[in-house]
Simulated assay, not measured.
Amino acid sequence: MIVELALNSERRAARALIEASGLAFEDNVDVMYGMYENGELVATGARAGNILKMLALAPDHQGGSVLGELVTELVASGQRAGHESLFVYTKPEFVVSFQALNFSLLARQDKVALLEYGKGLARWLESKRGLVRPGLNGAVVVNCNPFTNGHLYLIENAARRVDNLYVFVVREDRSVFPFDVRYRLVEQGVRHIPNAIQLDTSRYIVSGATFPTYFLKKDDPVARIQMELDVTLFAAKIAPFFGITRRFVGTEPNCPLTGGYNLAMQRLLPTHGIELEIIERKQAATGVISASRVRELIGRGDLAALAEYVPPTTLAYLESDAAGPIRARLQDDFRNSSPRGC
């Protein structure tokens, strides 16, 4: 029988089983379930949002029906919470077991595989079919927190090197500037580029499913694994749909995590027939243009200095009443020395 694990003693037992299985334990989950046999916890798993995680079974309970029962309960909890598709990480040797439970493989690397329950990726791609164009196609993936002259420089240069440039804007809201603002600022900033095709990433590029540590200042093996999964998913599933054979990034002198992501692309994209082109970052008089520098200037209240760093459309928004809450938040962060991402 599957039961919810809510007591501290139950969570400690789950942690022991999870870590004994070679997985990392994470406290931040919506629900955790387990199965006991003769008073001993023999299986456990958790859900955080639409991600199933920390699925662990005692060695003598692997290969039977326990995994299916546990996953069924977790999927049901996710559906009750309103998630139409769910994701799971597992070891590559367990991929077949999850496929038997109606999960589809999205990406794998040497230690971890990512699978999806539901048809989310297929539906998302089909919804973008009208954007598919013939020719030499490239892509950039941007967060734009907010959209800067550096982003514009990258997109303009990339667009000149391909017939069509797909500009993927990261949908997940882990940024100071919410997605709708970031998307609109990109849209306004690239209107003059006729071959730029803008779209959101849904949950399939640099998202909580494929890259939950993307906005953390932490370069550890977990982050490397997530980077490789994200790059592989893009290269194996998304790029072929749009006919993308080039991906463009800027040089990254300041942010080790983003720099590591660039290195992962250098290693993995060519194995899928995708060329990575690295474009030298645009410089301002005071150094490299970055979104973090823009946020710092806003935090300092130095809006006059922003004209060198952002396009007129972004500047107009930053100076507007609509951006007032964001300016206040950044100024509060600056006073409390709380930096937010690269």
Rank of each mutant, 00 (worst) to 15 (best):
M1D: 13
S9M: 11
A14K: 10
L17C: 09
L17T: 08
I18W: 03
F25I: 09
D27I: 07
D30C: 09
M32A: 14
N38Q: 15
N38H: 14
E40L: 13
A48R: 13
G49Q: 02
G49C: 06
A56H: 00
L57D: 00
D60I: 02
G64A: 10
V66H: 08
A81D: 09
S85C: 07
T90A: 10
K91Q: 15
V96F: 14
V96I: 13
V96M: 11
L106E: 02
K119S: 13
K119A: 15
G120I: 00
W124L: 00
S127D: 11
G135Y: 06
A139Y: 05
T148C: 09
T148F: 05
G150D: 06
E156M: 07
N157I: 05
N157A: 14
D163V: 04
D163L: 04
N164Y: 04
R171P: 03
Y183E: 07
Y183W: 10
L185R: 06
V190F: 09
P194R: 13
I197R: 06
L199F: 08
Y204T: 00
V206F: 05
V206R: 00
A209Q: 04
P212V: 08
P212N: 08
D220C: 03
D220F: 03
I225M: 13
I225W: 12
L229K: 08
L229E: 14
D230Q: 04
F234D: 09
K237E: 07
I238D: 00
F242T: 00
T245D: 04
T245Q: 10
F248Q: 01
F248P: 01
T251R: 06
T251H: 07
T251K: 08
T251C: 07
G260W: 03
Y261W: 13
A264G: 05
L268W: 04
P270D: 11
A284S: 14
V294N: 07
V294D: 08
I298W: 05
D302L: 12
L306Y: 10
P312M: 09
T313K: 09
T314A: 02
Y317L: 07
Y317G: 02
L318G: 01
P325C: 01
I326E: 11
N336C: 03
P339A: 07
R340S: 12
C342A: 13
